[in-house]
Design a protein around this nucleic acid. Structure first.
Lengths: 168, 168
DNA sequence: ATAAAAAGTTAGGTTAAACAAACAAATATC
DNA sequence: GATATTTGTTTGTTTAACCTAACTTTTTAT
């Protein structure tokens, strides 16, 4: 079954899409996969055969498509990378949500495990650390527009910080 | 000349490599491009023709290869994306430098202009804002290992912060 | 100055991923 | 339950990017 563990970007996208369709429609259909990936149904069939041979989906012609346990494990992993990147782009960098989603979809194939782990940790840390968190992200947002920090304001901002630890 | 503005990931890598070789050796040679990209020289020739047709490099058989102004502009842009991502991965997320470089090399083709702009801004902001900066990154590093924040320590950390504004 | 070595190119082949269009199966409708 | 529609598959092509191996040009060394 496990012909080759290395999945191309394209095959990763198929798995991700199938997972997504399983969630919303219980089952994935060729037509819907094609629609989501903006490709023709004929191209989908070819990919499904490959995924079937790799043991990642249950595929037989004309039947509904479902992920195998191994396929699901991989799909969830891809989805996790996607969500992490999207969260970082949208919630931290404040990139608009559609762009964040599209870029996450491309970057998810490029990120390595170490960077992903650190990114997850970073996102948590920004949230957890009293020195950062939501209000700090607001400051970032303003900085993005003005491209500079105001030392006057920094001074008063810093003074208000000790109160933050109480809130938690 | 400008046959098509959209460059594949592969062609972007060629341009980036040529820029790199121009910097170190004044000129790029087929053999060196092949070595850097870990592909065979025969494959390089094909790509060079395409880049030549697109007006991005000065290419004629057996001659040295140089970037045209347009090619250089694009190569510098790719390089900029690469450096930004590498900086973020290595200096902020503290991913080891070789991994950061390799991942940046893959992500540079996936990031969109808005996300790049925000990322550049973010990296600056982390450096500029008195609430973050180098010592905050040390805290992140510790957090990465322990996976939790120590509220006791947070309290004393916050109290030391106002002094930070003076330093700047 | 020429022969050997190195570098570069060409030609033909492979693979992955898409396409279009003809065809087959399944589902829905009357 | 027959037929029309929808859905899915097959077949044959295309394209990009690589490969190998033969060949050509350039460079180096004697």
């Amino acid at each position: 079954m496990k012909t080759n563990l290395e999945l191309s970007e394209s095959l990763e996208n198929y798995l991700e899409t199938i997972l997504d369709l399983e969630k919303t429609s219980k089952v994935a259909r060729t037509k819907d996969i094609a629609a989501k990936l903006a490709i023709k149904p004929g191209s989908v069939t070819g990919a499904l055969k490959v995924l079937g041979e790799k043991g990642l989906i249950n595929y037989s012609p004309y039947a509904f498509i479902t992920l195998t346990p191994e396929g699901k494990r991989i799909a969830l992993d891809i989805n996790h990378r996607h969500r992490t990147l999207k969260y970082f782009l949208h919630e931290i960098l404040q990139v608009d949500v559609a762009t964040a989603d599209a870029t996450a979809c491309r970057m998810e194939h490029a990120i390595d495990p170490e960077s992903l782990k650190k990114l997850i940790c970073f996102v948590d840390f920004v949230r957890e650390c009293p020195r950062t968190g939501a209000d700090w992200l607001d400051h970032f947002s303003k900085y993005c527009r003005s491209e500079q920090v105001n030392r006057e304001k920094c001074s008063s901002c810093l003074k208000k910080l000790p109160a933050k630890i109480e809130e938690k």
